[in-house]
Amino acid sequence: MAQLDYLAPLKVEDAVKALAATGSYALAGGTDLLVQLRSGRIRPDTIVDLKRIAGTIGIREEAGGFVIGAATPGAMIGEHEALSRAWPGLVEAVSLIGSTQVQGRASLAGNLCNASPAADSVPAMIAARAVCVVVGPAGRREVPVEAIGTAPGRTSLAPGEFVLEIRLPPRPARSSDAYLRLIPRTEMDIAVVGAGVNLTLDAAGVVIEAQVALGAVAPTALLVPDAGAALVGSKLDEASLAALDTAARAACHPISDKRGTAEYRTKIAGVLARRAAFIAYERAGARA
């Protein structure tokens, strides 16, 4: 019988080498990987634990933005005050992943690379224009978050590649973000729909930049430029919110499954985009 191997390399190069082999899986927080292992959905030869590599756990401020280590647990992200002030939407999205227990382990990179279209942090990261630092046999490259997931359970990462850290751009004044999701209960569910909105206002309170991203309404999380465009130039009046709702719904091409029907998901995408936009707008206004 095949035996599983566990490696916890200390260096990026060693991790890359180990992950290049077929049957190797990267372990960050493990909250998805261990479930798949247990259910027999995956039968790895080697598990490569990334958490002993320097920098994979932790948050630092760099060049006016933030750098979040790939395996930093959600709880640590939620406790980071400066990050929470600058990116409240991203932090609340991360904090929505699973239970308190899951927050003790689950990571941004894991949430991203598990490649579920319903991952809560992903729409928030996309709306934030976050960039992944990917390392691999060919060296180091920077990739926008939305380019990682290609289909449910699939990523654009080549064998041996993994996400080392996630970079958030510098935050101008009068900008903020928000993330909302719909679940049938109040906790512990996978998002039926998720919506992240990231806004920058001018001194008069007019939206000058807007990104809207949606989760669980397509095979991957979506950046919806039309939805963002609907807000630019407005103060979130009724008409711009209606246009946002319409654009968000137009971008959806969801499936019907045990978590929700396609029709319902589409309607809710519009609702949540509007509500998240409203919250982001209030927050951005407060960061004058």
Binding site: Y6, T31, D49, Q101, R105
Partner: peptide, 13 residues
Amino acid sequence: GRLVCSCLMLAAE
């Protein structure tokens, strides 16, 4: 110091 599910963590970790 962090609350976790011990079913979601490898003993080796």
